[in-house]
Design a protein around this nucleic acid. Structure first.
Lengths: 343, 343
DNA sequence: GTAAACAGCTTAAGCGGTTAACTTAATAGC
DNA sequence: GCTATTAAGTTAACCGCTTAAGCTGTTTAC
């Protein structure tokens, strides 16, 4: 079909090996020949066949990334920074979206293996140990987000949820809030559980009753549903702590629709500091977990794992910082206050 | 390194050709042998090397997609449906994000070519004719979003912006609005220009003055800036027509911060019906251009182009439908009304 | 009963690169 | 001046798969 390295070699009057060496900066090539080859390559518009390259040089220069849902505003930025950093290290990236479907996780993993990736960043909230073994068993590096066992060929990036949630709770406490509600995700997912536990611990530390714990699904609809449940509570809380921004936005939507004002009547906090948090009105008080860092850290971790020979896994920690914006305010004076409009 | 087709063939006691035929449903294989091979494959956990496959069978089963910014809420859904549809046709997908950078467009194109893609969906608002030629010249299919020349190996998906904008304008007109402002993107991008022209035409058709035209950048910040410009206008418009949802959300943010209520004082419309439009308060009146369709249509178009031998390009049309939500309402009674709080 | 047709396999030649091993010429060391 | 070293290239054997062509043995046609 297209041009091959042989065509270039022929035109330049050198061997294919020399062309290859020039293109990869490997062998000994005189500056003169190098220039000749390079100009021939450019003149002919030659582009090396990536598949042939990967095949010939056993180790491919590819990293994989598996995310659960590219439509979740949490991911795009992470993906972008992962790609940028991976490219920086000279890797290609292939992406798979599992849409929260376990069967797709298996397919995604197989795709990665078929493409001979050097490492894969798993950014879904659950991933079967079986699959993990299938990857590390083939001596391929993996990084997880917060759910990973650290072991040979596997590193983990831990987000400091405890600290993040603690800052949220203390912020609300400082504003006079005492009656709160937590809206989480399905608690069988570790990352959700961690946040829930951090919430409970923070509340207990302040000698407060954690109050009702509602279950969302990390999506807008979950927040919406949780919001209506909150409205049906006998006693309206003065603050709602949501597990992520999308959930918080859903809660706010439900509340304001019922005439409950945020933050005057009820304060609401998010988590993750997605762009969404800034777009909505009122802008969300949320927690910055440095998402752009998550991606580049994963790429760095994979690079390190796959470069070293023994490849012991590492644990990385990403800090969390409270970002105070408009969705939180002083607790309403009359405790138990329920605005007139609420049915 | 890993298992090869030879290992499988050895274990099953057949030739590599037979294994290959079973895996690809190509040659003549008895049901018995087929079962034997399949079970051996499963038992050994064999996964074919994608690079070797692609190399050996000249044509790869890969489609490429180039988007301008994965962080723009317009894209994730399009990407997802493209991938889903491509997989349905049996293709792999590789993705490139150009971050609006022309140099990255070249790199993205090269990546696609190096990976021997069968077709590439270009979803950026600009793409040099030079690059287009480099792709179609290699007899690789391309689809564009609204900027494409239809010709051999190139199809175009046109969004019915005119109709969409017209519906917006008529909706506002019906609500009594007469003094409007348009917030667009940089007009040298064709897709922006089309929308602007559609706006002007729709206004003229109703014998209205199009009013001021402000320039955003399709992002939140652009909307924010346009919003403050609107606030400084001698006469506040009663409605703002924004070129996309993100811009509309920025405008609303700026307005509400200044105490202007949406939609009571000013109505604002978006475009694209991204999820964001639903998340914000008030929920955006926007235009549905069926984004999930855009992606699958692009995949279908590429599949068709690369299957047929003559490969004449086609033009596809995607309709636009107004979705009325909360950000638009009747024009305020006192024309020229400026709320007290506005400085 | 023999030739033709066909089902069911195998053989082996690539696909387009990389890279270890080798050759040759130039340079350095003594 | 001769050998040892190095710089600059070349040769050719893979990498793991696909697939055209070939080879059996069995069935069908007449």
């Amino acid at each position: 079909m297209g041009l091959t390295i042989r065509d270039v070699a022929g035109q330049a009057g050198v061997s294919t090996a020399t062309v290859s060496h020039v293109l990869n900066n490997t062998g000994q090539v005189s500056p003169k020949t190098r220039r000749l080859v390079l100009s021939t390559v450019r003149r002919m518009g030659y582009l090396p066949n990536a598949h042939a390259r990967n095949l010939a040089s056993a180790r491919s220069r590819t990293l994989g990334m598996i995310v659960s849902d590219i439509e979740n505003p949490f991911f795009p930025e992470v993906i972008k920074s992962f790609e940028a950093r991976a490219r920086h290290h000279g890797y290609e990236v292939i992406l798979s979206d599992t849409s929260y479907d376990p069967r797709l996780m298996r397919r995604a993993t197989e795709r990665m293996l078929e493409h001979q990736v050097r490492g894969v960043a798993v950014m879904t909230s659950e991933f079967s140990p079986q699959l993990i073994r299938e990857i590390t068993g083939r001596r391929i590096a993996v990084t997880f987000l917060d759910l990973g066992p650290v072991r040979p060929y596997a590193s983990n990036i831990r987000i400091d949820y405890s600290s993040g949630i603690q800052q949220v709770v203390q912020h609300l406490y400082g504003l006079g809030h005492r009656r709160m509600v937590f809206v989480g995700g399905r608690p069988r997912l570790k990352s959700n559980l961690v946040r829930l536990q951090a919430y409970i611990a923070s509340m207990k530390a302040l000698e407060l009753d954690p109050g009702p714990v509602l279950e969302g699904n990390l999506r807008f609809e979950g927040g919406l549903a949780a919001g209506s449940k909150i409205l049906r509570l006998k006693l309206l809380p003065t603050a709602v702590v949501a597990v992520n921004d999308l959930t918080a936005v859903g809660v706010i939507k439900a509340l304001t629709h019922a005439g409950v004002r945020v933050p005057q009547d009820v304060s609401v906090t998010g988590f993750d500091k997605t762009h969404l948090a800034e777009y909505v009105t009122p802008a969300l008080t949320t927690v910055d977990i440095h998402r752009e860092l998550l991606g580049s850290m994963a790429a760095d971790a994979l690079h390190e794992l796959s470069s070293s020979t023994d490849a012991p896994g590492k644990e990385y920690l990403v800090s969390a910082e409270l970002v105070i914006r408009e969705s939180t305010g002083p607790a309403p004076a009359r405790t138990g206050h329920v605005p007139a409009e609420v049915k």
